[in-house]
């Protein structure tokens, strides 16, 4: 029962973006299209999974003093793996995500899960936590990107869904649009949370 809870908490109840406000930099920067959001979410989930797995495995060997450098090393290795693999096999996605792939290293969501969860729990729970958080992060990105892509380009997953006569609201795919969307969605989440309590 506890295991299921560790998995589902990341999706809504402790959603990394909307509730914990973690990993906002990529959430703002690469949510201009749903395609980018899925790519970014998948990359972050992979890194999260890898780092949680390794850290929960080696947590007993790491002296407390140097745990942060060790975590960062593990995370950076996984990010570099994602970066090189994506560059080789998915060049268009790599091109559009650009600098934000290497920047996953400093995504505070991943370090915070390593510090707050993986370094204290077993392998199984850590993997479930990483999966839940990764899915929650991807979901948040996709929700934000859905609004931004439809309003800002009139498309969804690059398919034209609004009539051609629609004049795209350019601000939605500019940085201010990301702030507006995240702000309004966070407000909505808080409202829902308040009602549920």
């Amino acid at each position: 029962m506890k295991a299921i809870g560790e998995f589902t908490k990341g999706i809504i109840k402790e959603n990394p973006v909307f509730i914990m406000a973690l990993g906002l930099c990529p959430a703002l920067a690469v949510s201009t299209s749903v395609e980018n959001a899925i790519g970014m979410g998948a990359a972050a989930t992979f890194v999260l999974l890898g780092s949680n797995l390794i850290i929960s495995l080696i947590k007993n060997f790491i002296p407390a003093k140097i745990r942060i450098p060790c975590f960062i090393l593990v995370i950076a290795s996984f990010v570099t793996i994602v970066d090189m693999t994506m560059h080789a096999y998915l060049p268009p996605l790599h091109k559009s995500l650009g600098i934000f792939i290497p920047l996953i290293v400093v995504n505070c969501l991943i370090l915070s899960r390593a510090e707050a969860f993986a370094s204290k729990n077993g392998v199984g729970l850590s993997i479930l936590d990483a999966l839940g958080m990764g899915i929650g992060f991807t979901l948040a990105l996709v929700i934000i990107a859905t609004f931004r892509e439809i309003l800002g380009s009139g498309t969804f997953l690059n398919m034209q869904i609004l009539p051609q006569s629609y004049k795209p609201m350019i601000v939605a795919i500019l940085p201010p649009g990301a702030f507006f969307t995240i702000g309004l969605l966070m407000g909505l989440f808080n409202q829902l949370k308040k009602k549920n309590n």
Partner: peptide, 27 residues
Amino acid sequence: PTGILLIICVISSTILSVLYSRTKPII
């Protein structure tokens, strides 16, 4: 701690260098 950091660094750089030599020609 130095030893442990060294071990982690060696392991991760080994993995990365292997991957690098594999992906470089494709890129």
